[in-house]
Design a protein around this nucleic acid. Sequence first.
DNA 1: CCCTGGCGTTGAAGCGCTTCGACACCCTCT
DNA 2: AGAGGGTGTCGAAGCGCTTCAACGCCAGGG
Lengths: 338, 338
Amino acid sequence: MVTLAEVARHAGVSASTVSYVLSGKRSISAPTRERVEHSIKELGYHPNAGARALASSRSNILALMVPLRTDMYVPVMMEIAIAVATTARSHGYDVLLLTGEEGPAAVRRVTGSGLADAMIVMDVELEDERLPLLHAARQPTVLIGLPADTVGLTCVDLDFTATGALCAEHLADLGHREIAVVGEAPAVYERHTGFAERTLEGLRRRAADLGVRLLHRPCEGSYESMDGTLSRIFDERPGTTGFVVQNEAAIEPLLSLLRRQGRAVPEDVSVVAICPEQVATQASVRLTSVAIPAQEMGRRAVELAVAKLAGGAPEEQVTLLAPELAVRASSGPAPGTP
Amino acid sequence: MVTLAEVARHAGVSASTVSYVLSGKRSISAPTRERVEHSIKELGYHPNAGARALASSRSNILALMVPLRTDMYVPVMMEIAIAVATTARSHGYDVLLLTGEEGPAAVRRVTGSGLADAMIVMDVELEDERLPLLHAARQPTVLIGLPADTVGLTCVDLDFTATGALCAEHLADLGHREIAVVGEAPAVYERHTGFAERTLEGLRRRAADLGVRLLHRPCEGSYESMDGTLSRIFDERPGTTGFVVQNEAAIEPLLSLLRRQGRAVPEDVSVVAICPEQVATQASVRLTSVAIPAQEMGRRAVELAVAKLAGGAPEEQVTLLAPELAVRASSGPAPGTP
DNA sequence: CCCTGGCGTTGAAGCGCTTCGACACCCTCT
DNA sequence: AGAGGGTGTCGAAGCGCTTCAACGCCAGGG
């Protein structure tokens, strides 16, 4: 294994000079720099991460806590994770993958051991049990998702309240007066996941403002579940002509069942989805949708974390990404509307 | 920040004693151990990861290289990644997430810097450009997937050749004489991804043995693509009654299109899928399928890596998991068969 | 009663790097 | 010409931990 000292000897300089060439923290004359760089290449030198971390008390690692549950909105999670990893690399950081399994213990371990310089936490619940620990931690933290109380926290999320409002508005504009919301699985609401509740709130408020009736039903992402949910919706509100779907696994079942019942999309019923763009464009009907900007969220989270590490970011900062509704082929005027 | 030295002082012992209590590498009397453990708890001590790595030249980190492409078999990837992370934790390791983006450079970086003790590489191509580097690396490596040449390598994978054979056999047993294979996207074959080619080989060979005609068509995971593919299949082989689908994103489009064309599953055509169990059971028809044991693969990979680190594993070892076909509602006797 | 050998504990020497203060040198200004 | 201020380089002191050799102690055997 090649060490910095060997590089220094090879280049005929001191160890500190090599270190400064590497870090750029002091000016080095061009000829010296070149000599050192040449030696580095020739010897195939790679700085030892442990030694570096010890001496500088910086690990250049970002910890990413992903939820353990692999049954929900997985593609979004994965997309965020990959965006985090790539963005982190472009800032010189590596990413440590922590699963929710350990729960708060993971926070303590990473925080205490100096394994990571900062943490990015996904799938934050409204009253997340990790929050107190994160507050107490030395490490900067960025949340993807919004807890109930954001005092002193840095958060990134899609503005789900606005998203809900936007969906309600779009359908109302098209003349729909009875809207059904196909929500996430019941478990999601039981965990008080922020985004689900916020979406609902946005939907409800705007619907109320616009005089539209709204019915919300949680739904698992399977055909059986969607079948039952759909029957119940039409039983209770036969006049339903608009759907907002938040559970991406329920989208295809919904479309399929509507087709089977002879309800045409968008002639008889309109469907608006909240899902990644790819899902919307690849579904059996090109879906009017609000995209979940997974990549953007991952990227922003990393950038905020890096900024906090550099000391150039405020302690408290909530970044809400504005939702954008893309009108595609699944929504149209309500039946009987000119 | 609490250091080992402070714990030692607090417990009235030397630093080395504390270290030995922590590592268990030397016997320590019960009273001393208890005193030390008590101090650790009281002071809230966590060993510094960098210092530990430097002194022991062990980071207790496993690197996981995931493919960058977020468009393919994402749930499987995620499931593997999470299984890797949890299994790793249970062995005292953390997981560093590397994306394919950096390619071979990532291998060199991690290898050179001692950031990780071992590597787990997913999505291996037949002639993967990372292989030479992995061979040269000090670190033990485990591949998830099979390259063309496995000499000196440790690999874990589903036995895709057997999987293909199993699918062909199942359909042949049911009397199907013309089978179509809906493959992965063309890009997957262009990259010479092992599992896709092996599956095909297994299918072809067994089909030939059993006197069944086989038609293979790559297919993207969208409705448009599936629509085109399906038309072409029935144009070329109007007598097709059996389908094997490998691209999980194409499953729902296929079922949907068959329905629309008035072909009943399983009365008119049978469908066998190669996909995670969850996809098979939650599709619009409960699918006869061969499961992709993502969790098992992740778990095995970690266990092999840990064994190699402990020196208790052979250099070369190819673990092929036996496929299991679960018969569900999407396959039945070919039309006209008693 | 002394020697031997295991057991429990310690001190000290690094692991490979960063960083601080010091220093030599050269240029510029007065 | 001498003072002053950059600029480029170096030496040395750690960062917090592991681990090796060594040592004191007590029990058992000769």
